[in-house]
C-alpha cells in the first residue's frame, strides 16, 4: 500500500508495526504495571539507573528487541537499512544516552507511553525532541551533510 504523493512511505507496514509496539507497551503496563521505556530499561539492564523493574526483567526486554527484529528479518527475507559512519554513530549515541537520562525517556517512554497517557512532561518532551530532530536534519541538509551510506 502506498500513500498518494509519498511514494517512499509504507503506511500499512508502519501502522501494523506501530500496533505491535503499542501491544508490547500494553503488555508491560497491564501485566507488570510499568512503562515500556527503552532508554530506562536499557540503563537498568547495565546498572546505570533506570526504572524499578528487576535487572533480569530489564535484560529480557532488551534482549527481546533484537530477537523481535530478527524474527521479522527471517520472515520477510531481510531488512533494509542504511547507517551512518562510525564517528557519526558515536556522536549521536553519546547525545542520545546523555539526553535520554537527563530527559527521563525517549521515543518509547515519552512518545508512546506518556503521550497516550496525556502526561504533560511527556507531551513537552516529545514536542521538544521532535522539533530538535527536525531542526537537526534541516541544518545538516542545508550544510550538505549526507551521513547515511
Amino acid at each position: 500500500m502506498t500513500l498518494p504523493g509519498f511514494p517512499e512511505a509504507a503506511p500499512l507496514a508502519g501502522l501494523v508495526g506501530g500496533v505491535l509496539i503499542g501491544l508490547a507497551a500494553a503488555v508491560m503496563l497491564l501485566a507488570l504495571g510499568r512503562i515500556a521505556g527503552v532508554s530506562g530499561l536499557a540503563a537498568k539492564a547495565v546498572g546505570l539507573g533506570g526504572s524499578g523493574i528487576t535487572r533480569s526483567g530489564a535484560w529480557m526486554f532488551v534482549l527481546g528487541l533484537p530477537l523481535g527484529a530478527l524474527i521479522v528479518a527471517l520472515l520477510s527475507g531481510g531488512i533494509e537499512a542504511s547507517f551512518a559512519d562510525p564517528l557519526v554513530l558515536a556522536i549521536a549515541g553519546l547525545l542520545v544516552g546523555i539526553g535520554t537520562r537527563l530527559g527521563s525517556g525517549c521515543t518509547s517512554g515519552h512518545g508512546v507511553c506518556g503521550v497516550s497517557r496525556l502526561s504533560a512532561r511527556s507531551l513537552v518532551a516529545t514536542a521538544t525532541f521532535m522539533v530538535a530532530g527536525i531542526a537537526t536534519v534541516a541544518v545538516m541538509n542545508a550544510l550538505g551533510l549526507e551521513v547515511l551510506r
Binding site: 509504507a10 508495526g17 506501530g18 505491535l20 515500556a36 530489564a58 529480557m60
Partner: peptide, 24 residues
C-alpha cells in the same frame, strides 16, 4: 516477570523492524 518482559521486548522489536524504524 522475566518471561513477560521478553514477550514485550520481542513484540516491540518486531514492531520497530516491521514499521521500518530500524532503518535510519
Amino acid at each position: 516477570t522475566a518471561l513477560v518482559s521478553l514477550l514485550s521486548g520481542t513484540l516491540f522489536g518486531a514492531g520497530l523492524a516491521l514499521g521500518g524504524m530500524t532503518n535510519p
